[in-house]
């Protein structure tokens, strides 16, 4: 445990309940969530459809409000953050489509600098160099002046990641960044995220259905189940047989040796 003196806890979740508030009732989707992410870690949230992965991510990103519990960013409670402080601590890549696909790649990435620009949004030299950094990190030089409607799904996803990078936050949250991509681009994107997390010491948390890929590439995994949640390093979770509990055992079974799922025949 002497490691904790060196590393820094970027995101801490204590006994969190998530769900939706409506006029009369509150619908709890998941409760009893507890985990910590260190600086520079790539982590994935996995689980079956409808278990609350996206809801958790959106709650952490303050897109929707929590039901109970505590979320701490850099040791400070989320609710104590002002909108601008929040914007310079957490950046998002969501599944919702862009409102305008007429933006150029450059314009879109530049919008990531909004928390730092003046009232009308003029870019300073620092803003411009941060944008350049983000572009070269994600490798978008060639696409810089393209319009977003000209891009493929994979390219657009990389542009959205570059936008989050230019926002220069310590935490990046991504909601299913690998959906709609083929296997090659999925792997490429996950490797890019891993590289970003390790090189820039940003904490990256994503939701994914690619459990096998998460086992191979992520530092930490949160498995969401109906009754309980498991959190830890992939090999710890394999030892705990946590992956076996994700899906009903009559459809797929987890092979601990290869770290992959097999269809039950």
């Amino acid at each position: 445990m002497n490691e904790s003196t060196k590393t820094h806890i970027a995101l801490e979740v204590i006994d969190l309940s998530i769900g939706y508030h409506s006029n009369k009732e509150t619908t709890v989707i998941a409760e009893g969530l507890d985990f910590q992410l260190q600086q520079g870690e790539l982590a994935a949230i996995v689980g079956v459809n409808g278990i609350g992965k996206s809801t958790l991510l959106r709650t952490l990103g303050n897109v929707q409000s929590k039901i109970s519990g505590t979320i701490k960013l850099d040791g400070k409670a989320l609710k104590k953050y002002s909108p601008i402080e929040m914007a310079s601590t957490i950046s998002l890549v969501l599944t919702e489509p862009l409102a305008s696909k007429n933006l150029t790649v450059m314009e879109l990435i530049a919008l990531g600098r909004q928390p730092y620009t003046n009232w009308i949004g003029s870019l300073s030299n620092k803003d411009k160099s941060k944008i350049q950094e983000a572009i070269s990190m994600v490798g978008l030089q060639a696409l810089k002046n393209k319009k977003c409607y000209e891009l493929s799904d994979g390219q657009l996803q990389r542009v959205m990641i570059a936008r989050a990078l230019s926002q220069d936050t310590s935490i990046i949250l991504l909601d299913e960044p690998t959906s709609h991509l083929d296997l090659h681009h999925k792997v490429q994107l996950m490797q890019l995220l891993k590289q970003i997390a390790h090189e820039t010491q940003k904490t990256i948390l994503l939701t994914s259905h690619e459990i096998e890929m998460a086992i191979q590439l992520c530092d930490k995994i949160l498995i969401m189940n109906k009754e309980s949640h498991d959190f830890g390093e992939p090999c710890e979770l394999i030892q705990k047989q946590a992956f076996e509990r994700i899906f009903p055992s009559d459809t797929v079974i987890f092979d601990a040796k290869t770290g992959s799922f097999k269809i039950k025949k």
Binding site: G61, N62, V63, P83, I84, M86, A87, S88, I90, S91, L92, L94, E96, P97, L98, A99, S100, L103, L108, L111, G112, Q114, P115, Q167
Partner: peptide, 12 residues
């Protein structure tokens, strides 16, 4: 232009 949730996440 990004959408409302993104706008909010940018501190608007």
């Amino acid at each position: 232009l990004l959408g409302e949730n993104y706008a909010r996440s940018l501190g608007i």
